[in-house]
Write a protein that binds this DNA or RNA. Structure first.
Lengths: 212, 212
DNA sequence: TAGATTGTTAATCGATTAACAATC
DNA sequence: TAGATTGTTAATCGATTAACAATC
């Protein structure tokens, strides 16, 4: 299957986020035993338009059959391949607080192939304790740990004041992706991908509309 | 100050999310004792353009002084008022799992004026225990609790399979906003605002770009 | 074949950016 | 006054949607 017809440049983050959504919808349909699905019903389930669905998929190839629609399992597997979920990804977590804890134990990540193999914190009370089979390590040993066992992605769940230093640390450790939950602007060098997730933004958006 | 010149209709969710970001940047500048800031430096701190900053603010009024820029505290307070952060908001949490725990104890929310006054779960082992001064209540008593003490916003941190029912429950309880962390499509009636936050999306976006 | 639905092109819509007059 | 920077309009860019030929 020819994924990516050379026009990857034109694929926007919006499309990627929707693919991620199609993946979840298709997984659900598969679980329910649904065999085929049209762009129209996929669109309805995702609260978008059928043109959007077809356009999104068209960046990566032709996955459907005219007159019939898409085979659920086939399309799901195509999207899994596109999103890179057909392999194992290793993660390092920085910050073993409440949020770090929730991320580490979030089953969805493991099911998607994302595995935390390091957890770092600066709190000596936490260092040495174990989360599943991962021992919490003091952040001062992070560089060393990352040299011994490198990871693909660094996940930042520290207080905002620490985020910048931790990002530098994990980038020097060789990660190619950073997922930042700290509500502060951080910088990564060329060639490293950064995504920011800010839990307050959605809540503040709600309070804006509720105030009107 | 004339916030909202009647063109609120034209304000996009993109603008609101950036306001939320300006708010954090301005808070940081205030803490550092910075008195005035230009759209250019605000833009640099937020990794966008100065035209974007001025355009975003222009939907709500004129907050700056030509030739000088914006007073940090004044602009911050204007944005606080726009986002509705100048009042107390009450929240009900559904799902006392890892994620619910992280959300409940997340200091940033309380600092912004968002207060969880109810926590519901279906696990009898959790029911009766307390988080700070909030007793975890069985979900079957949620309707009753919400009647006694209504809230502004329902926060859904249940497994996806439970999300739909819980949303119906909380909407019948009179909330005007729903913040859904469950990775499943939910529906709310006209007049209720919904925001979805999916922790997997950002990670899957990273794996997509890292795969290329 | 007739009906259904894809894949894609062209049209539309909306968000971002550039430019500059207004003005401190 | 001269320099700086806002607020706003017009131009550009990019994302979404409509439409339809291709085709199962």
């Amino acid at each position: 299957m020819a994924i990516l017809d050379g026009n990857l440049e034109k694929v926007s983050e919006f499309t990627i986020r929707r693919l991620s959504n199609y993946f979840r919808i298709l997984s659900e349909l598969e679980k329910r035993g649904v065999v085929t699905v049209s762009s129209a019903s996929l669109a309805e389930l995702g609260a978008i338009t059928s043109a959007q669905v077809r356009k999104d998929l068209s960046y990566f190839g032709s996955f459907g059959t005219r007159g019939l629609g898409y085979k659920v399992v086939e399309l799901k597997e195509a999207i899994v391949a596109i999103l890179g979920l057909d392999r194992r990804w290793t993660l390092a977590l920085f910050g073993a607080g409440f949020l770090g804890h929730a991320l580490f134990f979030h089953d969805g990540f493991r099911e998607d192939g994302f595995h935390f193999i390091h957890v770092f914190d600066v709190d000596d009370a936490k260092v040495g304790t174990k989360w599943r089979d991962v021992a919490i390590t003091h952040q001062r040993h992070a560089a060393e740990s990352l040299r011994r066992e490198p990871v693909d992605i660094g996940v930042i769940a520290t207080p905002p004041s620490a985020a910048r230093d931790v990002v530098d640390l994990v980038v020097r450790g060789g990660v190619k992706g950073v997922l930042n939950f700290a509500p502060t602007q951080v910088q990564v060098p060329e060639g490293v991908w950064l995504r920011n997730v800010n839990l307050a933004v959605a809540l503040e958006s709600l309070s804006f509309y509720l105030s009107q």
